[in-house]
């Protein structure tokens, strides 16, 4: 089960979900920033796709965070999601 705890799996999970949501899957990049108690996953998408991963009233971003939250519980490690915009750091 140690394989499950590797953060690159979570990085891959967010990548897969984001790729299915956007128009330009080739621009999807997820970086992992390891912290002591949690890992921040930073999602980059094409500028025209930022709205797609955030969603109306932030609903798509919130749904992805809920999914990540459930998986975090399962892995006993917290993963958080940041959506990166080129100009501003995060918009919701």
């Amino acid at each position: 089960m140690t394989e499950l705890e590797r953060p690159d799996n979570m990085q891959q999970l967010v990548t897969e979900i984001a790729k299915a949501l956007v128009d330009d899957p080739s621009a999807v990049v997820v970086e992992a920033q390891e912290g002591d108690e949690s890992t921040v996953l930073r999602l980059h998408v094409a500028p025209t796709d930022v709205g797609k991963v955030i969603g109306k009233q932030g609903r798509t971003a919130r749904s992805m965070r809920t999914i990540l939250g459930a998986v975090s519980m399962k892995h006993h490690h917290r993963y958080t999601l940041d959506i990166i915009e080129e100009d501003r750091s995060e918009k919701e």
């Binding site: 089960m1 499950l4 799996n9 979570m10 891959q12 999970l13 897969e16 979900i17 299915a20 999914i67 459930a70 998986v71 399962k74 892995h75």
Partner: peptide, 16 residues
Amino acid sequence: EKIASLLKTLTTLGGL
């Protein structure tokens, strides 16, 4: 198929 692939991501990578 798209839904199946989302669920597969959760069961494999997500470990659910």
